[in-house]
Amino acid sequence: MNVVVIGSGVMGPGIAQVFLMGGHRVIMTDIKVEALAEGTKEIRNSLNLMVAKGIIDQDVTALMSNFQTMTSLEEAVKDADLVVEAIPEVISLKQQIYGSLDQFCPKDTVIVSNTSALPLPEIFPNFRPGNFFVAHFMNPPQIIPLVEIVKNDKTNPEKVAWLRAELEKCGKKPIVVNQFVKGFLTNRMQTAMAREGLSLYEKGIISLEDLDIANTACIGFKSAWQGTLETMDYIGLDTCAFAYNVIFPDLCNETTVPSIVTEKVKEGKLGLKTGEGFFKYSEEDAMARQEGLLEQLKLYNTYLNK
């Protein structure tokens, strides 16, 4: 399969790596030569790290032989079976790209966007109807198993089934969201949990440090191996019904961004990328996070294959 990834920013290289590991021919395209060079370096380093950790046993040189970079979108997509758009969330930029794709792609090419929020098939209803939908990869895409496929009434179900099967062959765990909702599935669930946690913090009930400990030492600890509904089954649905009857009326239902978040943004404390958000970060923290996620992936793969 010929796969083209548009954009060599935060997500593009990782998405390209997913399909390389799946045995496909991949072209990554960007208007900046420097971005393509940096993205290529990221892919090679990530593949080498996965080999070193025993997550994959593929030959990195052989994998990279199926990889190309191009600045010409027309040349990149002329034989594409699948195009993954991973450019910034700017409507005017996407409109420009889609106009070019409509002109240059074969008529049967499946085109998906990695958008995390925008209802693009609704914004561009006349762009390749049926063959254009959303495939939302999680960051870092080469590690996190989940991909959200978001379809609508115009989407060709055969194309969705095809992409889901291809992603599974690449080692991913795709799910299908049957219609557009803001934030899709995972972002909605994460946002709901963050809203409640930050509300408790602002009320003085919990510290920021202990809020995160509760996630990693309990919620996240279990969630790696069992989903929300399976957890409810283990607890007992009668117990859940009783507890929810008590807790639901007391949950936060604010519709504005918590003040602690807006204040941090005003101060320029945006998280890892600025060195400080709720907590402070060093350059080593990003690598430590990736190392931890890779170890988690090894355990996850072992669990699934047992």
Rank of each mutant, 00 (worst) to 15 (best):
T155C: 00
N152W: 02
R188N: 10
F184Y: 14
N178Q: 14
N178D: 13
C218K: 07
T216K: 14
K182T: 12
R195T: 13
R188G: 07
I213H: 12
A214T: 13
V181C: 11
P145D: 09
R195V: 02
D153K: 09
K151N: 05
K172E: 06
K172G: 02
N152Y: 05
P157T: 06
R164E: 15
D153W: 00
P174M: 02
S207N: 04
A194W: 14
E158R: 02
E209T: 13
D210P: 06
K182S: 12
Q179D: 12
K151Y: 04
A217C: 11
E158W: 00
R188C: 11
I213E: 11
N156R: 02
E196V: 09
I144V: 15
Q190H: 10
E202P: 09
L208C: 06
Q179N: 14
G204S: 10
D212H: 09
P157G: 03
Q179Y: 14
I213L: 14
K173G: 00
T191W: 10
R195Y: 12
G204K: 06
E196S: 11
C170H: 05
V177F: 05
A161K: 10
W162F: 13
A194Q: 12
G220H: 08
G197F: 09
I175M: 11
K182E: 12
Y201E: 04
V147T: 04
G204W: 04
K154P: 00
E202D: 07
K169H: 07
L163H: 01
F180G: 02
N156L: 07
G204L: 05
D153S: 12
E158D: 15
E202I: 09
A165E: 11
I205E: 11
L200G: 07
K172Y: 04
M189D: 03
E202N: 10
N156G: 03
L208D: 10
L167K: 02
K159P: 01
K222W: 11
T155R: 02
I205W: 10
F221E: 05
E148N: 06
I219V: 15
I175W: 05
E148R: 06
K173N: 11
A217Y: 13
L167G: 03
F221Y: 13
L185F: 11
